[in-house]
């Protein structure tokens, strides 16, 4: 089967094209409705919507620390998952039940184990409690 060498940078050319198409689509949409739509402004019309109340202060207030801690916990896991993908592809190439495969399995179990310790710590600290 004659197929494109998968590592060739040419293979990513269609992705570049679709990216350019997406950017053009987005820009054309925004510009079109800027040009075609009506324009009017007013004292009340310009205020942010708050169910008819006059807004009090800016909307960009301090927010709950939980969101921040959650994002940090997410980072730990996301990076870990990305490391697992190359391992998964290599691991399946190995002979089942061979000593080498056992070594691979043991190493990745240790790696996942370190993250699971962090996960349990975060859980017991109440990172996932939102009540």
């Amino acid at each position: 089967m004659q197929l494109l060498a998968a590592s060739a940078i040419d293979a990513y050319l269609p992705i570049g094209i679709v990216f350019v198409m997406a950017v053009i689509f987005a820009i054309v949409n925004i510009v079109a409705s800027q040009l075609l739509g009506p324009r009017a402004d007013g004292a009340v019309k310009g205020t942010p919507y708050e169910s008819g109340m006059d807004p009090i202060g800016s909307a960009r207030k301090k927010f709950n620390i939980r969101f921040y801690v959650l994002a940090m916990t997410f980072l730990v896991f996301d990076v870990e998952i990305i490391f697992l993908y190359p391992w998964a592809v290599t691991f399946t190439q190995l002979e089942p039940r061979s000593p080498e495969a056992l070594l691979f399995l043991g190493r990745i179990l240790f790696f996942i184990g370190t993250s699971v310790v962090a996960y349990i710590y975060a859980w017991r600290k109440g990172v996932f409690r939102w009540d």
Binding site: P48, Y49, E50, P55, S58, A59, R60, K61, F63, F67, L70, A71, F74, D78
Partner: peptide, 18 residues
Amino acid sequence: SNSKFSFLGGLRASAQMI
């Protein structure tokens, strides 16, 4: 958006998506 509804919605959606 400078709207409180948008701000809370954006926070919630980002937390949910990640």
